[in-house]
Structure formats: C-alpha cells, structure tokens
C-alpha cells in the first residue's frame, strides 16, 4: 500500500514537473513563431536570402531546427547565437556590433558629417565676397569715366 502511495506521489510529482516544464516552454511554436526568428537570419548557402523564404532543403531543415529550439524554450537571441556559432556571422541580417564590424556602422555617419561640414563651409564661403572680387570691383569702378557712363546711359535709353 505504502509502495502504491509512493508511486502515486512520484507520478504526480513527475507530472507536475512535466507540466511546469511545458508551461515554461510555452505552446507549440506556430509557423509564424518560426518565421519571426527565421526572417532575421540569412541562408548560409544561398546569397542574400532570408531563411523564412528560402526554398532549399537545407533551409527547411534549419527552420525545423528553429521550431525545435523554440519548443525547447530557447529565446530568439539564444537561437540566433546558436546559428552564429554554427555557421558564422554571415547568417545575421547585419554584421554584429563588435570588433572590425563596427566600421560598417561608423563610417557612413562620419562621411555624412564630413559631407555636411563641406556643404556648410561651401555655403558660408560663398556668401562672403572674397577680397579679390572686392578689389576687382573697386578697380572697375575707378576706371569708368564720365564719357563711358554717358555712353552706357545713351545705349540704355536706346534699348528702352
């Protein structure tokens, strides 16, 4: 009798443990759950093809692997880390923010800032007349005599 009670308790305990574990793992992953992770990964074989739409047999297996990992309670980050460990950083949709790969993120803003600075200084410098231009205009003013002025005015009248 004691033995039976012990077995019953053990069964309940195991059932409880299984239920708890199942609860922690959540429901069976749907296709949408799998695609949500797969769309963030790129096929290691085909060029530039996200895993969720890749038709190859290898990618089908990888999607099943994602489903399995999700059903085991793995998080999205853990699954991505697993794929990176297995197939390298190229499976990620963008380079990891570490080491040399930082360059991909840093270079464009730096160049953009340089470009903006160049445009700004170009605009500023263009707004101020340079001394050369000022001198030339002064020089021109001094060389125009009254005869020239009269002639220009006559020309203008004729045009009108």
């Amino acid at each position: 009798m004691k033995k039976n009670i012990f077995a019953l308790v053990l069964t309940f305990l195991l059932a409880g443990l299984w239920a708890g574990s199942a609860l922690a793992q959540g429901k069976t992953p749907t296709d949408d759950d799998v695609n949500a992770v797969a769309s963030q990964l790129f096929c290691p074989v085909c060029e530039n093809t996200p895993l969720d739409v890749c038709p190859t047999a290898a990618c089908k297996q990888w999607r099943e692997l994602i489903r399995l990992k999700l059903s085991e309670g793995w998080s999205e980050t853990q699954i991505k880390e697993y794929f990176v460990a297995q197939y390298g950083a190229r499976v990620l949709a963008e380079p990891p923010r570490q080491g040399f790969s930082w360059l991909v993120y840093i270079v464009p803003p730096i160049l953009l800032a340089i470009g903006a600075y160049l445009v700004f200084t170009t605009l500023r410098s263009m707004r101020k007349p340079t001394p050369d231009v000022a001198q030339v205009s002064v020089g021109l003013e001094t060389t125009v005599d009254d005869d020239d002025l009269r002639r220009v005015e006559e020309e203008l009248k004729r045009l009108q």
Binding site: G88, R90, V91, L92, A93, E94, P95, S101, V104
Partner: peptide
C-alpha cells in the same frame, strides 16, 4: 578578418 558577414535590409 576572414569573416564573412551579410549587410542586409535592416542596415
């Protein structure tokens, strides 16, 4: 670095 990376749509 010898490391292949993907620069995809999010970037």
């Amino acid at each position: 670095t010898g490391q292949k990376v993907t620069v995809g749509p999010p970037f």
